[in-house]
Computed example of a mutant assay.
Amino acid sequence: MKFKSVLAAAAAMTAVVAVASPASAVTVTSVQIKSTVEVLQVAELQLFANGLNVAQGKNATATSVYVNGPAVPSFAVDGDTRGDYPFIYHGDDYNAGDILTVDLGGAFDVTTISIFGRTDSCCGFRDNYIYTLFNGAAQVGTGTLDARATAFATANLAGAVPEPASWALMIGGFGMVGGALRRRKATVSFA
């Protein structure tokens, strides 16, 4: 009977740890994407918070748009990852000066960023990105994503290291489970 209560306590402890927010989630209100080479082209930007893409359908603006097509900034957050021109955002600055900015309309604890690049027969060599995450005016993260080989790249912003409170909860829980099992073992008699 005590063993079942120990298992129930361990399950409850695990549930509490699983619900805790990720240790390295980054609170983000907007993101900027730049290219490491000439023209910026983005088929889709995805920012995940609690398993949801919080970038989809948000306000996207850019410093330029390619003059020969309707490859507007909103195409980078429309939910379409296929990467065929003109259904992508395509900048017009051939000096790697384009900046795509997505305003999330609020603060989200983002754990993953993904960028889909171009998949048609042209220009996949441009799918190399620099992203900068902002919380208001403060820069809270930056990195690079290289999607040139696969037209898709992801960075996990949530690390595998739990917060100190989660460590304390886990260690305390394991101690309780170990103590309960030790007491149970001491009370067993062989008749």
Rank of each mutant, 00 (worst) to 15 (best):
V17R: 00
Y131R: 05
V28W: 07
F116V: 01
K2G: 13
Q139I: 14
G179Q: 04
A62W: 08
D146S: 05
G124T: 12
L40W: 10
T119F: 11
S5L: 13
S121C: 05
A147C: 10
F75Q: 14
F75L: 14
M1P: 12
A155I: 10
V17N: 02
Q46D: 08
N95L: 13
V28K: 09
T144Q: 13
G143K: 05
A11M: 11
L100I: 09
P22C: 08
Q139G: 02
F134L: 00
E38W: 12
G175L: 14
Q139P: 00
T29L: 07
A60N: 05
G83F: 03
F75E: 12
V42G: 08
S114I: 12
A20K: 01
F108S: 08
C122M: 07
S24E: 14
D98K: 01
F116A: 14
Q56M: 11
D103P: 05
A96R: 12
P22S: 12
T111M: 05
L133N: 07
V140G: 00
T119N: 15
G159A: 01
V37E: 14
V42M: 10
K58R: 15
V188K: 13
A158C: 00
M13G: 12
G106N: 06
A62L: 10
N59H: 15
A158K: 00
T81N: 09
V188E: 13
C123L: 11
P164S: 10
L47Y: 04
A23C: 12
V37D: 14
Y66M: 02
G105N: 02
G57V: 09
V161F: 11
L145D: 06
L181H: 01
P162I: 00
W167H: 11
G106F: 09
V161S: 14
G124W: 02
V31N: 06
L52I: 11
A12M: 10
D103M: 03
G136A: 06
M13L: 15
D146R: 04
A20I: 08
R82W: 05
A60S: 02
V16W: 01
E38Q: 14
N95P: 00
A138F: 10
S121G: 15
Y89T: 05
G141E: 10
G124S: 14
L100V: 09
A147R: 07
A137N: 14
S30I: 01
A8E: 04
L45Q: 00
Q139L: 11
P22I: 02
N68I: 04
G91T: 04
P162H: 00
G51Q: 07
T112S: 08
P86Y: 06
A180W: 05
F190C: 09
L104Y: 09
P86Q: 07
Q46A: 12
A49Y: 02
A43P: 04
Q32L: 01
Y89W: 10
